[in-house]
């Protein structure tokens, strides 16, 4: 280096050249990646613990530590959680709650998306006097704590003869999903080029014609986003399930809580964790399968109208 120094000004090719060397193990990289690693460990750990615990037998759990992988893998806890776990005196397992949740989920998701998309479409393309006012009320409604509204809804459902029945809960999900979904659809339809809508009107298409033949086919991605949002939201609901249904109709989350937190009998942690996993699997599958769309769905909740 020293004997080169004289030449630096004279010759062109001297001193640093090409890309600045960035060692893979620079202090900065080490810090960033080790932090990220620890963070990921922290977030992944509970899922790991859940799975590991659910695959162990009770004797192994009593002896070992919760982070240790199972010595002897057994699927018995899963079978038991699904088919035999007890809530109170009823020992038919979590499967009942699973099917209840499915029965609640399908009509709730379909109906709420249908209604909210039509609402959003009317708000975006067929504004009428007062439509924005109702929409604003709806959006602010999303911030009203549920606790303020739950009891009057009990009365309304009772009057309609739906209290304690699945259709009643479906109605509740449709109502509470409406603000966010309407916002989602309204914003999306507003972003579509208006020429499309105008051209269709010139061609004589009416309100429903444009909706079904132009808007819906053009908006499949946003329908998927809405579906993801609703499926996870409804599946994970606990409060409405516990209030508006009777024990034989309890959704999975409610049944799960009753199984795990029941005070009777010996605690079977492996069965509990298997039951917890079973309940978590549906949203997890949706989450891992949908990737970016899930992020888009929850981010849609964050954007303001």
């Amino acid at each position: 280096m020293a004997n080169n120094s004289i030449n630096i000004a004279a010759t062109a090719v001297s001193g640093p050249s090409g890309p600045k060397p960035r060692p893979l193990l620079s202090p900065r990289n080490i810090m960033i990646y080790s932090t990220l690693f620890i963070v990921c460990m922290y977030y992944a750990l509970p899922l790991y613990v859940m799975i590991v615990t659910s695959l162990k037998g009770m004797p192994e759990i009593r002896l070992g530590n919760i982070f240790a992988p199972p010595v002897e893998i057994t699927f018995q806890p899963w079978v038991k959680a699904w088919a035999e776990a007890c809530t109170g005196l009823d020992c038919s397992g979590l499967s009942k709650g699973f099917w209840n949740s499915v029965k609640i989920l399908i009509p709730s998701a379909a109906l709420s998306i249908l209604i909210a998309s039509i609402n959003g479409y009317a708000l975006a393309n067929w504004k009428f006097k007062g439509s924005e006012v109702f929409f604003t009320i709806l959006i602010f409604g999303a911030f009203v704590p549920y606790q303020v509204i739950i009891y009057p809804i009990v009365i309304i459902l009772r009057e309609l003869g739906l209290f304690g029945k699945l259709p009643g809960l479906v109605l509740v999900h449709v109502i509470f999903g409406m603000p966010i979904l309407t916002l989602l659809f309204r914003n999306y339809f507003t972003s579509l080029p208006e020429e499309l809508f105008k051209a269709a009107r010139v061609d004589g298409a009416g309100f429903w014609g444009i909706y079904f033949r132009i808007m819906v086919p053009m908006s499949l991605p946003i329908f998927v986003v809405a579906l993801i949002l609703q499926v996870t939201g409804i599946w994970n609901d606990f409060l409405f399930g516990v209030i508006y249904t009777k024990p034989e109709n309890y959704p999975m989350t409610v049944q799960l809580n009753n199984i795990v937190n029941s005070v009777q009998g010996v605690k079977e942690y492996n069965v509990n964790m298997a039951a917890t996993m079973l309940t978590g699997i549906v949203p997890l599958i949706i989450y891992f399968a949908s990737g970016k769309l899930f992020v888009r769905g929850i981010a849609a909740g964050a954007v303001k109208g």
Binding site: S14, G18, P19
Partner: peptide, 17 residues
């Protein structure tokens, strides 16, 4: 931007890095 190859001099000083 990090250059992929070559050098840059400003006022006679090699400033590539």
């Amino acid at each position: 931007l990090d250059v992929s190859d070559g050098q840059i001099f400003i006022n006679g000083k090699n400033v590539t890095w």
